[in-house]
């Protein structure tokens, strides 16, 4: 398999994630889309690492995974707090930070 195949897959995953991020209203879905985008990036990292025969890409992937894990912890906590306070999981209802 060539590099291009991995990159196309990575692009497709990213687009699905980005589109879902914009379209979905449920916080959990938005969150999942976010994870999808991160992993799309991870995929291209490892693809490049293998292609260029360099290890830095793989190291970066670990970094991204750590960030994603931390983000998941914080994000889910926020989701729970949001539900407790607002009785909703819709991102559109959490719009009080505006002009």
């Amino acid at each position: 398999m060539d590099l291009i195949h991995y990159l196309v897959l990575s692009m497709l995953l990213f687009i699905i994630g980005a589109a879902g991020f914009i379209i979905k209203k449920n916080v959990i879905s938005v969150f999942l889309c976010l994870e999808l985008m991160l992993n799309a990036v991870n995929l291209s990292f490892v693809a490049f690492a293998k292609h260029l025969n360099q290890v830095q890409g793989q190291i970066f992937v670990f970094l991204v995974m750590v960030v994603a894990a931390a983000e998941a912890a914080v994000g889910l906590a926020i989701t729970i707090v949001l539900y407790r306070n607002r009785k909703t999981l819709s991102v559109d209802d959490a719009d009080s930070m505006k002009w």
């Binding site: 959490a94 505006k98 002009w99």
Partner: peptide, 17 residues
């Protein structure tokens, strides 16, 4: 311009994109 800051996270994401 202030109407851009509407508090909707999805609109911010769209702008970033």
């Amino acid at each position: 311009l202030k109407y851009v800051q509407n508090g909707l996270i999805r609109s911010y994401a769209a702008w970033i994109l």
